[in-house]
Nucleic acid binder design. Structure first.
Lengths: 234, 234
DNA sequence: GTTCGCAGGGAACTCAGTGCCATGCGTCGC
DNA sequence: GCGACGCATGGCACTGAGTTCCCTGCGAAC
């Protein structure tokens, strides 16, 4: 894998952020960065495909981590809980370098180009989650639709918590914020999570009489059958 | 407002798409476009801030329409239903020019730069929806969180239906696809004020053997049992 | 007719990103 | 020890997007 870290890459990131912070992103040219880092211009683009990439130096690795996390099974767990855990990987990356994350947040908030770039990164996370859910929901009615919607909701909740933390300059409790946000999503999409500590589930047997009934009605019926009420809102 | 349509703008769009389709987006330079349209290069950037903008010539107007739609009251309706209706404005714009929309879809699917640009456009729609919901949910616990999540879910559902329609080359029923997708979201987030359209649902009978099973597993079983989308409301 | 305003044209510039090749440097084979 | 090879880096020139500044033509107003 990535055995030792290339020093040049880090030097470029450091130089870039120094200049971005003191004179702004758009006012800084790639030539400025490489001059400060003392390397050739061509080398910059060897490490970063574009000027924007230097602002998000670790997202590529994080995305790979998430893909790997979702790739290795976990199919015995609730799919929604699984993607929530996957989202927490991103939070962890942000939380590893609070000051860096806050600085970057301020940058992306100001510069439209960086905001757009960030969107494309977030989109890739969302697609990874959605693809996983699509696999888990394969064959189910509206499987891909539910997968897309849940993935989007998870990402939105995660970002809501994350940004709340970033706005506090990293003072608040990032995990608590995101956990709270993700809990809401999980509650919403896991149809009335009752005693959830899932163990042996082989012996689930279901009988539904009326095939034409709407799904939400079926769920309601199940909830009534199981005995715990659908704890709506809070 | 925009009294008569500027002919030059349309000429540029037409010329651009001719070239994009026959030789690809990245293989077409702005100089190629203005040469074909018979206008000066400078004029292109007067009408479109960037090369990408020529691919989405009407989104700016649509976004203004949505903002206006959400701006004028409607506060007596269900907020979720309201943003769903707002999302349908976008669908309508796509449906107005099916062939154009399908061509553009194929382009954006291939070209990463256009995909990214589209994301930034979609993001602005999502923000408009979220801002509206934040206003509606102001003062409520987790108001902004719920606003962000619901906006994301609505956009995801809309896009799911929209893309399904685009993939069918505009043959399927766009409204039906999107209505179906948005209905799922609305059902999920509207605090279940009872069975909504409530028709023949009395005869749903369910039997679940194992009470300790996780809810998601039960639902999965039900869906497998039903084997088909149970709630296709035509 | 002169003047004002404005839509468009055009040259020249900045800067991101790419392709090509030279250079330096360490390692391996002999 | 010596050439061969691979690899990281630097240098340079080129394309193409986007911008700045200024020119031209044309219609309306006075």
């Amino acid at each position: 894998m990535t055995v030792p870290k290339p020093p040049m890459r880090d030097a470029l990131v450091a130089a870039a952020f120094r200049l971005f912070l003191e004179r702004g992103y758009e006012q800084t040219t790639v030539d400025d960065i490489v001059a400060l880092a003392g390397v050739g211009r061509r080398s910059f683009f060897r490490y970063f495909p574009s000027k924007e990439d230097v602002v998000f130096p670790d997202h590529e690795r994080c995305l790979a981590d998430m893909t790997e996390f979702l790739g290795r099974g976990g199919d015995e767990h609730d799919p929604v809980a699984r993607v929530c855990d996957a989202a927490r990987l991103v939070l962890r990356m942000y939380a590893e370098n609070p000051t860096f994350s806050v600085q970057r947040y301020r940058l992306t908030k100001k510069v439209p180009g960086l905001r757009t770039y960030e969107l494309s990164v977030v989109w890739r996370y969302e697609r990874a989650l959605a693809e996983y859910l699509r696999r888990r929901f394969a064959g189910q009615p509206d499987g891909t639709l539910r997968a897309d919607v849940i993935a989007a909701a998870v990402v939105a909740a995660h970002n809501n918590g994350l940004r709340s933390w970033l706005r506090s300059d990293g003072e608040s409790d990032a995990s608590a914020e995101v956990d709270h946000a993700l809990a809401l999503v999980q509650r919403t999409f896991t149809p009335s999570a009752g005693p959830d500590p899932a163990e042996d589930v082989e012996d689930v047997v279901v009988l539904v009489s009326r095939r034409g009934a709407p799904m939400w009605r079926v769920v309601q019926e199940i909830e009534a059958t199981l005995g715990h009420p659908p704890d709506r809102q809070n």
